[in-house]
């Protein structure tokens, strides 16, 4: 398992570096606007209030738009990049999982790997562990950048523990996406070429659906079935703080998905 972990980490080192740099630059760029925004939040809020609820919830990514202060520090980062980063990290992990499993099965490199004294489950665990490390490194870069940003632009008022909770809190929703994709690659034959497209569609589609469901009261009951309902940087920084229950719910779901993948991969016909 350690050998697989080392290999997976070696393969993703450039992605980790460039993604961390790219995300950090983007975060600093967005935070640099915050002082200007903080100067006149009332006027900006008036403009935002005139937008349809569905539009606001879509960009905000969680909860209803009613009485929402989009320009508080937490809600600002939630709407400007935190939700987007969940999608981005989810998409990167989906790509990595497809490359490491489905494409490896198709091009035969999986045959080489599994002919070595490495069990399928060890391979899955090694890859899963590298995903965890990958995510923690990128989230650390995000956290450090936000701390630096809050030091530079003092109008962006958030404590270090709040920023840590907002950054690392993203770990669990992304791990649910990772668990889902690991389960799929452990179950679906590599010859099914539509799988990747379906997963990306599901990732983006579920986010859009969740966003719109906030503006449609009849759909409110389905919102707990989406990961976005369990993570909100705005609530963590400006509202009720970090919800351990939400994190636990996502952790259990992610662990269950990984557990299923761990069980099923041993039954799979490889490269078929």
């Amino acid at each position: 398992m350690i050998a697989i972990f080392r290999k997976a980490l070696h393969d993703s080192r450039r992605t980790i570096i460039w993604l961390s740099i790219g995300m950090s630059i983007y975060v600093l760029l967005v935070l640099s606007f915050y002082p200007t925004i903080a100067e006149d939040t009332a006027a900006l809020q008036e403009i935002v209030d005139s937008y349809p609820d569905a539009m606001i919830t879509m960009f905000y990514g969680s909860d209803s738009a009613e009485n929402l202060d989009l320009f508080s520090p937490g809600n600002f980062i939630q709407s400007q990049f935190m939700v987007f980063f969940i999608l981005l990290l989810g998409a990167v992990i989906i790509g990595q999982a497809f490359n490491n499993f489905t494409n490896a099965e198709r091009d035969g490199s999986m045959d080489m790997l599994l002919s070595l004294p490495i069990s399928r489950r060890e391979m899955l665990l090694g890859r899963g562990l590298s995903t965890v490390v990958f995510l923690l490194v990128v989230l650390t870069a995000l956290f450090v950048t936000m701390v630096v940003g809050s030091a530079i632009w003092e109008e962006f008022e958030a404590t270090i523990p709040e920023l840590a909770a907002a950054s690392y809190g993203m770990f669990f929703p992304v791990m649910v996406i990772a668990g889902l994709i690991y389960l799929l690659v452990a179950v679906v034959p590599s010859s099914r070429k539509f799988t990747g497209a379906v997963v990306y569609l599901f990732l983006v589609g579920s986010y859009l659906f969740y966003g719109f469901s906030g503006a449609v009261p009849e759909l409110n009951d389905v919102r707990p079935f989406f990961i976005y309902d369990y993570y909100n940087a705005g609530q963590i920084i400006d509202g009720s703080g970090y919800q351990v229950g939400d994190a636990l719910t996502l952790a259990v779901i992610a662990a269950s998905l990984f557990g299923l993948a761990w069980w099923r991969i041993d039954h799979k016909e490889m490269g078929v």
Binding site: K7, H10, D11, G108, M112, L114, S115, S119
Partner: peptide, 21 residues
């Protein structure tokens, strides 16, 4: 016995794909 077997074998596939990096 896959893991024990794989410890004692060497394999060259017909369509070889190595890690280019």
């Amino acid at each position: 016995g896959a893991q024990e077997i794989h410890r004692r074998i060497g394999y060259l596939p017909s369509e070889l794909r190595l890690w280019d990096n």
